[in-house]
């Protein structure tokens, strides 16, 4: 089974600094593998251990994105494909078109796995767009994937229900974090990862921009906290009484 996993080198929101005007400082901001992408890599590795084959990891982004590729390789993926593009300029559809072009070049793949959304911008758009652009079946928000021969049964986790879906190979899928517990690479695996091959492509070349203007970010600003930050002092009973008094005054106690 040939398995493609798409990952993102996301801005680490916990480390993200704001300038004096409350704008995020994105140039040189610390990055990390998007949180839920670890579940996508893990699911790829699990499918490989059940069905043999190969796990190839794809990333679109700036040069630092190769760190995230290496992390996926340390977890056990076989090789990586790095697609160079400016993450601050491209929108979801551009990202998906670059991923689709890169996947086509080294494909065909039986399964293409993404996580449901990135931890930094969380649009959740790239996975279904990728399914469309690759022209394969797509199933979103999977919490369980079982592949048997040429078909697959997937459990989709929706807001209020779980949907069982049957689809056929090849297919693309996005996974939710409940699907598995991602493994931690060992030191040896981390060292071995640096020897695994990474192919480098240019996003603008493999997927020319065309005429779509896409979604642009006009401005970004932090939300000023409007919370009161009242520290309630005293022992448990005193603090409890003071809190209830305050909540009554706010009119939020039923």
């Amino acid at each position: 089974m040939k398995i493609a996993v798409c990952v993102k080198h996301a801005v680490d929101e916990a480390e993200l600094r704001l300038d004096t005007e409350g704008r995020p400082v994105l140039a040189g901001a610390a990055g990390k593998m998007s949180t839920f992408d670890k579940n996508a890599v893990e699911e790829g590795l699990r499918l490989k251990s059940a069905h043999q084959g190969e796990v190839v990891v794809f990333v679109v982004g700036a040069a630092e994105s190769k760190k995230t590729l290496k992390e996926a390789l340390a977890m056990g993926a076989d090789r990586g494909v790095f697609v160079a593009a400016d993450p601050l300029v491209i929108d979801a559809l551009r990202t998906a078109s670059m991923l689709a072009a890169a996947i086509r070049r080294s494909g065909p793949y039986d399964v293409v796995i993404c996580s449901e959304g990135s931890s930094d911008t969380y649009t959740g758009q790239v996975p279904p767009m990728l399914g469309e652009l690759l022209g394969v079946a797509y199933v979103g928000y999977a919490r369980k994937i079982e592949v048997t021969g040429g078909s697959a049964r997937v459990e989709r986790s929706l807001e209020d229900s779980v949907e069982a879906v049957e689809t056929s190979v090849p297919f693309a899928v996005s996974v939710v974090s409940e699907i598995n517990e991602p493994r931690y690479p060992t030191l040896v695996q981390i060292m071995q990862a640096s020897k695994k091959p990474i192919e480098e492509l240019n996003g603008g070349e493999i997927a020319p921009p065309g005429t779509i203007s896409g979604v642009e970010v006009v401005s970004m600003s932090s939300q000023p906290s409007t919370r009161k930050h009242v520290m309630i002092e005293g022992g448990p009973d005193e603090a409890a009484a003071k809190l209830l008094d305050a909540l009554s005054r706010e009119g939020v106690l039923k």
Binding site: A92, A96, P128, Y141
Partner: peptide
């Protein structure tokens, strides 16, 4: 919604417009 995000993303990809 989860289904709505998927439908919108697919639609944008089919039409080749921003989402």
């Amino acid at each position: 919604t989860r289904d709505g995000r998927e439908a919108a993303s697919r639609l944008a990809a089919k039409l080749g417009v921003g989402c």
